[in-house]
Nucleic acid binder design. Sequence first.
DNA 1: CCGTTCCTTGAGGAACTCTTGAATGTAAGG
DNA 2: CCTTACATTCAAGAGTTCCTCAAGGAACGG
Lengths: 226, 226
Amino acid sequence: MGRTMRMMLVEDDARVAAALATALRRRGHEVVHCPTAQSALDAFAGEAFDLILLDLNLPDGDGIEVCRALRRKDETVAIIAVTARAEERDRVLGLRTGADDYVVKPYSMAELNARIEAVMRRAARAAPPPSETLTAGPVTVDTAARRVVVDGGREVALTRKEFEILAVLARTPGVVVSYDRLILAVWQTSFVGRHTLDVHVGSLRAKLDVPGLVQTVRGVGYRLAP
Amino acid sequence: MGRTMRMMLVEDDARVAAALATALRRRGHEVVHCPTAQSALDAFAGEAFDLILLDLNLPDGDGIEVCRALRRKDETVAIIAVTARAEERDRVLGLRTGADDYVVKPYSMAELNARIEAVMRRAARAAPPPSETLTAGPVTVDTAARRVVVDGGREVALTRKEFEILAVLARTPGVVVSYDRLILAVWQTSFVGRHTLDVHVGSLRAKLDVPGLVQTVRGVGYRLAP
DNA sequence: CCGTTCCTTGAGGAACTCTTGAATGTAAGG
DNA sequence: CCTTACATTCAAGAGTTCCTCAAGGAACGG
């Protein structure tokens, strides 16, 4: 029932967005919220997504245009358009623009989930999982293969948490990631003690065995050597 | 945007059916009209269709059941459900049953055309190439002939599920396919337990008998050795 | 209608991972 | 130099996750 995926949520109403994001995260999805057309396009340029939930009624630009732009950049990403306008003209326009599906407000989570499932079912066959290869110094992290290679040859077997932590850090080498942010990214919740993170970082360091790679910034967080 | 295709129109109201069929034929489509659930199933058994326009309100049977039956027989055909019932429960049910899209009466030809185009666009994108020969290490998978050969000589007889699983994995060797994605791709739904997948992978491994080929990535999914 | 094949589900057990606590080590400030 | 706060290591129990074996039921073909 709950396959997990990376979603972009484009919605200007903060309240609606927060509620939706929470509900989707509870189902295990990773949700990135973009309140404006511009931020949506920016986010899309930098990250890979499985699904885009797009409000057509945005403050700084027509959602239809965003939809068109996204579709032009990526022909395969799933797009579900959301709108308050029930006018038929809009419905037709939305579908013609490249959205895979169309939901009219007000809608319930049940309906949205059903549509998400339908879209993902169709996409499952063709969509290659969002893949990126991250590099930081001597380590290479392949998120698609879920493999970590050190010094170009030695492959390191990591557990899930260790891998997640490394992946988050490797996404921004040289940048300090705070404890809170790291915990939130890896555990999707902050119900876990900070100490737990420390321990996982410890075993990660031991397995990678590259002195000075995973650096501690006292009182702040961790950072990967650039 | 008017690619021509074979459609089945399931609609009991003769007047509506005639008008619709005429309009669709004018756009170059080939339309077969089935006034009852039974005739729809009969026609479907004998001919191939690109798209099915299905009225859910039929005299001799529940349209939902027809939808389910059609989807069971053909996992790829496009289905657009049509109904007068705008209740959300029905909308959700329709989508979950296997319909690709859902139109509520009254609708205009413009909207219907837009939805037909959207569905066909998705279908084109998702349609697997008619034939591909996948290779991953010592195994060769012929999706057209549904044959699997190991080490260039030994042919392995797989069941449907086993074959589907292997085919999905072999499409992206070395890449981890998550449980959810795999289940979605093989079963088209996620109402099946994860354990079921485990068992099928188990028998797949036993039949292939290539140690280390199908790898488990704990907590994430499976991967084929590259 | 019967037999076969295939799919699903469950129980049990083994291996692995996560979390937590206590002890130890280390940096910064007075 | 000592104190204190913070960070790391070690170890063990609890909790997951995965695999094998086995049985019941559904679908299919004769």
